[in-house]
Amino acid sequence: MHASTKRTCLAGLIAVILLVLAGFVFQHWQTWILFTATKAIGYGLVALGIITLMRGGLVSFGQGLVYCTGAYASGLMATRLGVTDAPVLLVVGMLASALLALIVSPLIARYRGIFFAMLTVALSMVLYGVLVKMNAIGGSDGFTLPEPTFLGWQPSVDYADLALYLLAAVVAVVASTATRLYYDSMAGLVALAVRENELRVEYLGSSVFKVTVRHFTIAGALGGLGGTLNGMALGHIDPLFSFWTTSGEFVFIAVLAGYISVSAVFLSAMILELVRSFSNLYFPETWQLILGGFLIVVIVFLPGGIGSFWERVKEGRAARAQAEQEEGAGS
């Protein structure tokens, strides 16, 4: 195994242990964080998909499409076929969304920039329109899901949040480790080159089209995971999963995180959840103003996202160390 691969896997392992420990701490102290964290992980997974696209120079403003598809596919599996096993549902949701993304991607992979973003919004709104009309599966009200089980085990009420959180934590770490490994692989690095100069990549014999299809499918799989997870956490899904405002939140999380760091995406999802929830609590009449203002401030002052902020801190520390050294040498 390559040294960097080992390091990434090790980091993943440490992260799982820490997250699991944190889960048990919160179980006994401030239980509500477990649910908020689970939901943030669901959002974070979708945003991780957007970050994958961002590395190839694209942003989808319509990830609600795959988020919603995953939620509905697994939700229908649970209500119609009686499958309540959470890991199975996650796989179903992931595959359904990945498949949809694979089918759709050739349509949109020719486009770039704002056109790409817009076509994805349009597609997600088409899905929204279809679901609202389908009264057989709840129409605009959506439907309620049974409580998930875990490999045949049904946790008691007191531990239901914890069980789902632990599963979410494992999924989050596995997904981010896998994407990190992909980013660092040859294929993943080519994507970064696409971001810089597409023409050059084509001349070097790689296909930008293929990179885009691959990324959109990966983003679809991640979106499906996130949608399934949030469907299970909320116990209810509706067509708003595919509404453009939902997709806007995913992009916000991705931009807040930046495309450099994988783990930052979950932190930024958590920040969004907390800001939204506390502004709704303390400013119930102006929470949208606060949320929008927060968004603008973040984009203005942290354009590269939290990930870049760490980089900057690191650079700053290095610069200070260097300055101190020089000072020492001067005196």
Binding site: L10, A11, I14, L18, L19, I271, L274
Partner: peptide, 19 residues
């Protein structure tokens, strides 16, 4: 990567504490 993961978790804990 290890570093950023840890930082992310620490920052997460800080946010939670703020909450």
């Amino acid at each position: 990567m290890v570093n950023t993961t840890l930082k992310s978790l620490m920052a997460g804990a800080a946010m939670a504490a703020l909450g």
